[in-house]
Design a protein around this nucleic acid. Structure first.
Length: 195
DNA sequence: AACTGGATCGTCT
DNA sequence: GACGATCCAGTTG
């Protein structure tokens, strides 16, 4: 009986994002078979001033108030897309970096031929590589085009530190990443949590 | 290696 | 009317 490579279930996401976010490190995520291993995430919760759900439901953030296991996709800075997995109580996990596994040539084509290291090393980069845009907002993660696979083995070491690119609640240690992984988004913050 | 500004627009003040 | 859960190219040290 092979338990490894099983798909993630709804109960996996039916917890608060700060619990789910570290558990997603080492899982695999694909869209139409294109994607890779999750190596960096961030958690955002309902009572977190940095979270889109902090001020209650709006048209943009309504997916964040949906069922655990829903995709929340939003546009950032007018030109990029960011992908989130909705968890319990209007919390969500932002996908920040993947280690490319499948569909590498297609991802390179979408990303303008950058090196493999830089293919998915950032939230907007991985969205471009996987072809993510606003039309996936609100979709269930348990149906096509998505594929989610649980870890096949425990990650060597998961580190945590402050989140990146926000101006509020910056002290919360809700960014999680695979230690010393070259495919994460911030070279300087790869090995040690920021002080 | 570190910092700067530009691109670009929906959302909320 | 201001401002992002960003990225990239360019400049400076």
């Amino acid at each position: 009986m092979r338990k490894q490579n099983a798909g993630l279930t709804k109960s996996f996401f039916a917890r608060s994002a700060e619990e789910v976010a570290p558990d997603l490190i080492g899982c695999e995520f694909f869209i139409d078979g294109v994607g890779g291993k999750i190596v960096e995430t961030e958690a955002y919760t309902r009572f977190d001033p940095a979270s889109h759900s902090f001020r209650g439901p709006t048209r943009r953030n309504q997916s964040m108030f949906g069922e655990p296991g829903t995709a929340y996709v939003y546009r950032i800075y007018g030109l990029h897309w960011c992908m989130n997995f909705v968890c319990a109580d209007a919390s969500a996990v932002l996908l920040r970096a993947l280690l490319p596994v499948n569909g590498i040539e297609l991802m390179k084509a979408r990303r303008g031929g950058v090196s493999e290291i830089q293919l998915c090393s950032g939230p907007a980069k991985l969205s471009e590589a996987l072809g993510i845009s606003g039309n996936l907002d609100g979709a269930s993660l348990f149906a096509p085009p998505f594929t989610l696979r649980a870890r096949s083995e425990q990650p060597v070491e998961i580190l945590e530190g402050e989140r990146i690119g926000i101006s509020r609640a910056t002290e919360l240690p809700w960014r999680f990443w695979l230690a010393d992984c070259p495919y994460t988004s911030h070279p300087k913050l790869r090995s040690k949590p920021r002080k």
